[in-house]
């Protein structure tokens, strides 16, 4: 078996709360191959973002911690790595683009400096070399007149420009893994498309594996090779993106896919009501019951769903789902 670039095994992340320790992510395992684009999909609060932070060893501690499992980057465990080693990995082997370009850049330093210091932190380069590199990166992410822009401060740039700068920071050390946590949620639709074009373009040039975290199914369909669906801290379905769109197995996944509104050009067409999944994501502290976490919102739930949580089982070649409907038909 070839070793994967990144391998997450039985990951569990816990947070201390007034009501005791709760698990916000449990039994999460996935693999990421070189050059692959993996989508992680789910509603807000399902554990996507905290999973991303755990890959960088940045789970806020206290109150959070990785309480079980391993995160192997080329065989090296990130969970047990020293802070010094983690610093070498962050920004260099694994880097991250955050959701909020407006607040993720430091307001008091020029964007050039914020790119260059990342290069200086990981390579033994001089100030002027790092600055040259920063300008190159600005050019690469499609910022016009980069020599001039490098001297500007974040407040002088638009949201899309700032996200391009964030991407430049993330890619300056040519990481093996790039994590993008809802990178376009805060941006206009037209800018979103530009940013994703940029991601695709850069992936060809740099060849990094990408983990794309999003709740936008359209983005998943366009960008990713493989998809993981998370619900209430667990992985409930996994498979290639085509199967995810055309033949979702888990009722929750089906719900997500059906939530995409369709455009209709026929004015006489009576628009069908928008589809929604009833109910809300359970809070982590509600998850002490042994039932399937999705059962209260599932229209196909039957007796077994309320008794036992379904295991994640293979349903087809390269696909898995955690749903009793797949294995035990209601009788």
């Amino acid at each position: 078996m070839t070793q994967n670039l990144l391998s997450v095994q039985d990951l569990e992340i816990s947070f201390r709360t007034v009501a005791g320790e709760v698990q916000v992510v449990r039994d999460l395992s996935f693999e990421l191959a070189q050059g692959e684009v993996l989508g992680i999909v789910g509603e807000s609060g399902c554990g996507k973002s905290i999973t991303a932070l755990s890959l960088l060893g940045l789970v806020p501690n206290p109150p959070g911690r990785v309480s079980k499992g391993r995160i192997l980057l080329e065989g090296e465990d990130i969970v047990t790595a020293s802070e010094r080693r983690l610093r070498q990995i962050r920004g260099n082997d694994i880097s991250m683009v955050f959701q909020e370009p407006m607040t993720s850049l430091n307001p008091v330093y020029s964007v050039g400096e914020q790119i260059a210091e990342t290069a200086r932190a990981h390579f033994n380069s001089s100030r002027s070399e790092a600055w040259e590199r920063a300008i190159e990166m600005l050019q690469l992410v499609g910022i016009p007149s980069p020599e001039r822009r490098a001297h500007e401060f974040p407040h002088q740039l638009s949201g899309g420009m700032r996200q391009r700068v964030m991407i430049a920071i993330a890619l300056v050390c040519e990481p093996k893994v790039l994590i993008a946590d809802e990178p376009t949620t805060a941006l206009d639709v037209t800018v979103q498309a530009q940013i994703f074009d940029l991601f695709r373009d850069l992936q060809h040039k740099i060849g990094a594996a990408i983990i794309l975290i999003t709740h936008d199914i359209g983005v998943v369909a366009q960008m990713t090779d493989r998809v993981i669906v998370m619900y209430a801290g667990r992985k409930i379905e996994e498979g290639p993106v085509s199967a995810f769109i055309t033949d979702p197995r888990h009722p929750y996944t089906r719900g997500l896919v059906n939530c995409i509104p369709r455009l209709s050009l026929d004015p006489s067409d009576d628009p069908e009501p928008l589809f929604e999944i009833p109910g809300v994501v359970p809070s982590p502290s509600d998850l002490s019951l042994p039932r399937c976490a999705f059962a209260p919102r599932c229209r196909n739930a039957f007796a077994l769903c309320l008794e036992k949580s379904p295991p994640l089982l293979p349903v087809a070649e390269g696909r898995a789902a955690a749903c009793w409907l797949e294995t035990e038909k209601p009788g």
Binding site: L58, Q88, R90, G91, S95, S104, L105, E117, T118, H122
Partner: peptide
């Protein structure tokens, strides 16, 4: 958080 994620 960005500064930490850069590995500074």
């Amino acid at each position: 958080r960005t500064a930490r994620a850069k590995g500074l």
